[in-house]
Design a protein around this nucleic acid. Structure first.
Lengths: 95, 95
DNA sequence: CCTATGCTTTCCACTATGGAAAGTAACGAT
DNA sequence: ATCGTTACTTTCCATAGTGGAAAGCATAGG
């Protein structure tokens, strides 16, 4: 009814997807540091959003280290935009 | 770290306080309808926010009916503004 | 192969959120 | 005065979400 997306609304999720919205991809470790969460927590959020079709993840090697890159899918971007629009509808009324 | 206020961030809470931000007070029954929640749920959210000092509630009679009016306190308004600022910091980065 | 690393999964605990239903209190009627 | 109704409030319960620790797994590099 509010148009808020429950997959995105929780604080850590919102931070995750808004962080990703600025870039095409980010490294798992970078995100973990940026969000200040444990490996397991980030992994679970990423999995959930990958399963929802909002994120894609890609594994590869970078500078001799195994790395996972994560990024928004077009579906994820659309969902984020819609969520942001819904949030604005609520908070723009403030003041 | 994000500055989001956990007392305000949940969807129903956000709807409640943003609704109240536009007015000085609103009736309990009006809010219940606007938020589309049960009596018990609204009552519990209001209690929690009153206890936090974010809302005040006042009981009286209006048109022959007992009515509870609810409104933001100055503390609640401040918290809302800070929360909204934090939300904007996150979502304004989108696009 | 073996080890170390970079996630992933399992386990657990705790909190939040919601509705139904029982409880309470006070207005208005009689 | 008391009684019924109404307007919340509280209790009870079920479910889901969120988080970390620790064990698990897979692979690049040695």
């Amino acid at each position: 009814m509010t148009g808020l997306d429950p997959l995105i609304h929780a604080p850590t999720r919102l931070q995750l997807v808004t962080t990703l919205s600025a870039v095409s991809e980010a490294e798992f470790a970078t995100l973990r540091t940026a969000l200040d969460v444990s490996d397991s927590v980030l992994s679970k959020h990423v999995s959930a959003l990958v399963e929802a079709g909002y994120l894609h993840s890609r594994k590869g090697v970078h500078a001799g280290r195994r790395t996972t890159w994560v990024g928004l899918t077009p579906v994820g971007r659309k969902a984020l935009h819609e969520h942001v629009a819904a949030v604005r509808r609520l908070i723009d009324a403030v003041e």
